[in-house]
Computed example of a mutant assay.
Amino acid sequence: MARYLRRHVVRQSDRWVAAFQASANPLEVAQLLRTSRHALTSYADMLWSHRIEPDIEARRWPYRKIPIPPMQPGPEANLLHERISFVAGTCPQSGAPWPESVRDWMHYQIAGAALLSLWHDAMARAATAAATGMANWEEKTDLTDLCDWVAVRQPEGRLRFLALSIERHWLVPLPRTDKAQRREQVRQAQTFRWQALEAACRGSCLTWTPKEGWSVSLSCVPDAVRWRCHRLLGLHDIHPRFWLFTSSGRFVARLCSYRLHAMGDTAQGAIEALRQSVRQYAKVYGTHDLGGVPNPIPPQVPLRVADELAEQEQRADVERARQRFGFWHCASTVDHITRLYLQRRKVHAT
């Protein structure tokens, strides 16, 4: 079941779990759960995996490449084994022990029902956190409250296993596209990039060369052969994106956010010329037009000073609790801190 979850239901969940554990803020974690279905299922997988294997962080999030000692069974596993041994003892009618095949069959059925019930509970907790806006990853529910089953003896001497489950079956794999759909997506992406390049290469453009300096000329018309969008590195504080394409046998590097281009006989020469022109432009006019970080815009409705101070205090308290107790052991503490913060904000709002 864990392998099925990793391969089909919660693919690439490491970055989401890393974000949850790095934040440890119930409000921020709940906000992440609202972003996508991947975040929701990753949060449920984190709860489910830790419930089954309390020491799972020794080999996941991220995956460890070093040898680790064998894991000790957690309380859920011990409870599961106790219930299995109680059922797989003797037959209640004749008092004779169950056959080996019947005991193995009961082991599989009870384990499957318990694991599926825990997954339902994890998905329900994830959905509740996203709906209420406050996450709580503390383990409070007992397995006996989630898993209820019975084995009925049939007249033919067989057993029928019945498990009570009123939850939805949330083991739906993520949608996968076929080859034709993937090729169509690639074709559409190429079309959108070409349209964006054509829209950018219109009108006049600013050019700088080491020999002639600054000049204004018409934009180069790109050839429909090779074009790509890159990030311009080697500059201070800014990394603007630029188009690299061919035009009339020469390479052209043009900024995406500003009318500035540079040409060269090779792609490396065009990129280096664009880098030098951006440096010259930044010295005179600054980096605001080239993709630099603008000045923060104040909100239209100013926040109350008390609310802002309370939010900063809540974040600081949560961070101290996370560093002191860790992600899993600080769940009750950060939940108490967050509830006090929400209560205080509600009082200030009234």
Rank of each mutant, 00 (worst) to 15 (best):
S85M: 12
A113R: 05
R187Y: 03
R160G: 05
E212F: 07
C91Q: 14
L197F: 02
L118C: 09
A126F: 02
P175I: 00
Q190G: 04
L171H: 05
R202E: 14
L146R: 15
I166W: 11
Q185W: 10
Q93R: 13
L143G: 07
P97T: 03
A130C: 03
A199H: 12
R176G: 13
A130F: 01
R103W: 01
M134L: 12
R103I: 09
K211F: 12
A130R: 05
Q93S: 14
E156R: 15
Y108K: 08
L197S: 00
H81A: 11
A151V: 07
K140C: 07
A126C: 05
Q93V: 15
Q109H: 07
D148V: 13
S217Y: 02
A196N: 14
S204A: 10
R193F: 04
S94F: 01
G112S: 14
S94A: 02
L116G: 12
A135Y: 03
G95V: 03
L164Y: 14
R158S: 13
A114W: 06
T128A: 09
F86K: 08
A163V: 14
W194P: 04
C205S: 06
Q190R: 12
K140Q: 13
Q185F: 09
A88T: 10
A135L: 01
G157A: 05
A131W: 00
L218D: 09
A113N: 02
K140M: 08
C201S: 14
D104Y: 07
S215W: 02
S217V: 13
M134S: 15
M134F: 15
A129M: 04
C201Y: 04
H107N: 09
P97Q: 02
A131Q: 10
L79G: 15
E167K: 11
G203V: 03
A180T: 15
S117E: 06
R125L: 06
H169S: 11
